[in-house]
Design a binder for these strands. Structure first.
Lengths: 132, 132
DNA sequence: CGGTATCCGGAGAGATACTG
DNA sequence: CAGTATCTCTCCGGATACCG
């Protein structure tokens, strides 16, 4: 027997799943919630540059997919906490390895990009090396 | 001393990197090239549903980032082969784990989505269970 | 505090047709 | 075979302002 799902198949549902977890801010939210439960404002402060609208959309999507649990406390002022579900916890590992890869290989990629740039415009040495 | 790069920082270059490898078709191309070198047409056939334009764009981006190497043979008909660079190879592991997560957890996510749907429109039981 | 509502702009994705 | 060229269109994502 083969695999149940194959991401290479055009209509495979796993593509939808992949699309979701590949969404712009998913990795940030999951990473932020990996350590501990957080309130909306905490997430917003922690994930620098995210807007409330986008954070809400991301959280709603993750909640609908069963990755994040939303707990609302009926107090004043309002208090809402977000946490990873067990399913969301299981996503920590893959996403962490992706994030670490990104953080680790920044210099190599920059080097490759500058090299490619050089190849296209050979003469410009605005910041290129003097040492061969 | 802390980490050199932190994905949570708004201006961190690792975010750009993350964005690149999170691009729609990156995971497919890297996965396809994980096993062996492939020609353009092979990639196109293997990654079902991708259009030549998008495949080209993805390959060019990956090439610029130093993840994919393009080898052109001056023959007729033309023959062009794509392979992962060592840097690209290093991306295999993280992306494979993400892909496997997606393929593995499709049923759970579908279940969560249906449950969320139920919660919003409680009455409709078009395909819900007869067994409580 | 924890969101919504609304509007807007641009990048990316797709279909189709064509070329060296 | 391996792409380009064009065009369209959606959909994200961001800014801003407002609500319970």
């Amino acid at each position: 027997m083969g695999k149940a799902y194959d991401v290479m198949a055009a209509t495979c549902p796993s593509r939808t799943v992949l699309h979701r977890i590949g969404a712009r801010w998913t990795v940030f939210v999951v990473t932020a919630l990996a350590d501990r439960t957080m309130r909306f404002g905490e997430l917003k402060d922690h994930i620098q540059g995210i807007t409330p609208k986008v954070l809400t959309e991301t959280l709603r999507a993750l909640e609908a997919d069963g990755l994040v649990a939303r707990s609302e406390f009926d107090v004043h002022p309002p208090r809402v906490e977000y946490a990873l579900t067990p399913l969301g916890q299981s996503l920590r590992v893959p996403l962490q390895s992706v994030r670490e890869w990104a953080e680790t290989h920044v210099p190599e990629i920059h080097r490759a990009q500058r090299a490619a740039e050089e190849a296209r415009y050979p003469a410009s040495d605005s910041s290129s090396a003097s040492n061969a």
